[in-house]
Design a protein around this nucleic acid. Structure first.
Lengths: 337, 337
DNA sequence: GGCCCTTGCTAAAACGATTTGGCAGGAGTA
DNA sequence: TACTCCTGCCAAATCGTTTTAGCAAGGGCC
């Protein structure tokens, strides 16, 4: 764009100027303990600094067969905070290992995905993270050419390690908050649990198990899409029918948002009259009044673990269940007498 | 990980198997119209397919001095939807030009930022996008080695093209919604406009200008941090003092959320009693009841334009103002008589 | 035959790093 | 002196592409 692109300083330039061979310069700069006199070492280092030498990583990759890059192929990277934190976690771990992150989005298109994988393999990435936002079973990427692969937020039939959130434990935690506040009756669940959705079924399973273990019962289950509008409708209808919950477990924060609105309209106060707990710990949870207790998604940690599985020294387990953080806030109180 | 990493198929392997020289194979595969007989061409293509040949992009980069990669250095990539959409936009544009995106986060640490820039330059990226989430003046990245740089969501004193949202026009659009609904009096503004914040001052400027142009007045200006809690507090206090707005312009959706709550508590209904408009068009805006009219952030488009400025054919302007999309929803109505 | 084109292909030199296998020269030892 | 070791450095091969320059064979033309 601006000005003539001056030719980059090469290792050879540094070597010549320092009066040594490229070999020596390379040894000095890569810090390997070959027998180099301290004086020569300093001279090379100084020269490199003077010339502002920056190694050409393409050349290095070619020679060492190691690009110090890992590829992240996601179906969607912009689902709320989700994608961002996943990327951040992956990047942080990659950075720690001196790697960079090549981020791609396939928009769920399988042919685009395989094209991307192919390209990344061609770029000699050291490993591949395949992520989804929908958290379920996925067909394993093909044509990875024997490259290490880690699945993020999904599983597959291929023998790739998978990093997923521990939804069952999360479900237990959510129900646990309600149970420990003293609730045993009048507990409602809001949100559908489609069979294909791992988070849904996992959460549900955990909730039911925890309630059963505490001798509590799930009085009502309102099925609806995971959106405020839908949750509001189904909740408002149930309340209009005369039902009165003491605690509501929502399958995500957006549902809880709708539930809050429906409760407010019939004059029920959270948490005095009704306790509410949900999942995702999105920003919404802390904005609501009263602030919403929510079981968070360990996105950052999952991203981190995925890259760590690729780059770390220890072999990753076939399936890593990442615990979901529990954010207890003001939306839960003991049942009124 | 699994199995022996079989050596990758090289161009030379394809050439040998097809009985031609690497030169010929290269010409065929890169599709250049050197004089190659159709028969030979087909043979090479077939062989490449059979062997599942994938070119080594490190070698290609080294030779062509072109990595087909662009680097994105952000201070924070996980600010709500913001970062995700920026990345998506950048990636889409990069993909269109056959490039990939190397994503880095500096966490606002200048020394980390320059280390990252240095690394990316070493990786021979074709260009650099430097993005911030805070949208203001930034010190230009150093040590870019003459690489093309585009600033995203910020400006600097260096002569780099900048892509920023047109906050002033956005401000006019927000006020315009209110004005066109017929409001001239009882218009409030909520949210502080710190001098350092470009979006704040830009929005404010546009709002004031539009109102003035329509002969409307800004009756009240409530200053508060851009968070629901703070906005609720300041709004509730103003309402308790007896003030009654007919229209409220909020500097972002989170503020509007707090305002909604404060209005509801004193029995004012949106939009019958009070119209509300705000900025960001976050998910919150469509979840609120009634749905919130909001001036969106053109994140995707900005990311796209940044990369397009680097890779596109036409020279980018020094400062590109990207229009903010107007999302008119249910929170605005004509003033009651 | 002698000359020049055209066609279809190839040899070899880059690109810029890393790394193997030495090579001088001095010191130590017998 | 002759042999061996060690120190400090370097020549050259290598990674897998792209690309310049040119070669051989065949045909047309005079």
């Amino acid at each position: 764009m601006r000005g003539a692109r001056r030719p980059r300083v090469r290792l050879r330039d540094v070597a010549e100027r320092a009066g040594v061979s490229p070999t020596t310069a390379s040894f000095v700069l890569s810090g390997r303990d070959m027998r180099i006199s301290e004086e020569t070492r300093q001279r090379v280092l100084r020269t490199a600094r003077e010339l502002d030498y920056r190694p050409n990583l393409a050349a290095r990759s070619l020679r060492t067969q190691d690009s110090r890059t890992i590829g992240l192929v996601a179906d969607t990277i912009a689902t709320g905070h989700y994608g961002g934190e996943l990327i951040r976690g992956s990047m942080t771990a990659a950075l720690k290992h001196g790697h960079r992150l090549l981020v791609c989005e396939s928009e769920g298109d399988p042919s685009l995905q395989s094209a991307l994988v192919e390209d990344l393999v061609g770029r000699q990435v050291s490993g591949l993270v395949v992520a989804t936002s929908s958290h379920d079973r996925v067909s394993a990427p093909r044509g990875t050419g024997g490259l290490p692969v880690v699945l993020l937020n999904c599983r597959s039939d291929a023998p790739y390690p998978a990093i997923v959130s521990d939804e069952v434990a999360g479900g237990r935690a959510a129900a646990g908050l309600v149970v420990r506040a003293g609730h045993r009756r009048g507990i409602w669940l809001v949100g559908e649990t489609p069979p294909s959705s791992l988070p849904g079924t996992g959460r549900f399973e955990g909730i039911v198990a925890e309630l059963a273990g505490a001798g509590a019962v799930l009085d009502e289950q309102l099925s609806c899409k995971w959106w405020p509008e839908a949750a509001y409708d189904v909740m408002a209808q149930a309340l209009a029918g005369g039902g009165r919950p003491r605690a509501v477990v929502c399958l995500n924060d957006r549902i809880a948002f709708g539930v809050y609105q429906a409760l407010a309209e019939v004059g029920l106060e959270v948490p005095r009259d009704v306790s509410v707990v949900s999942f995702d710990d999105s920003e919404l949870a802390s904005w609501l009044r009263p602030s919403l207790s929510s079981i968070g998604l360990p996105e950052f940690e999952m991203g981190r673990l995925a890259v760590e599985a690729l780059l770390g020294t220890e072999a990753p387990p076939a399936e890593r269940l990442v615990p979901m953080p529990v954010r207890a806030r003001d939306s839960i109180a003991p049942p009124a007498v």
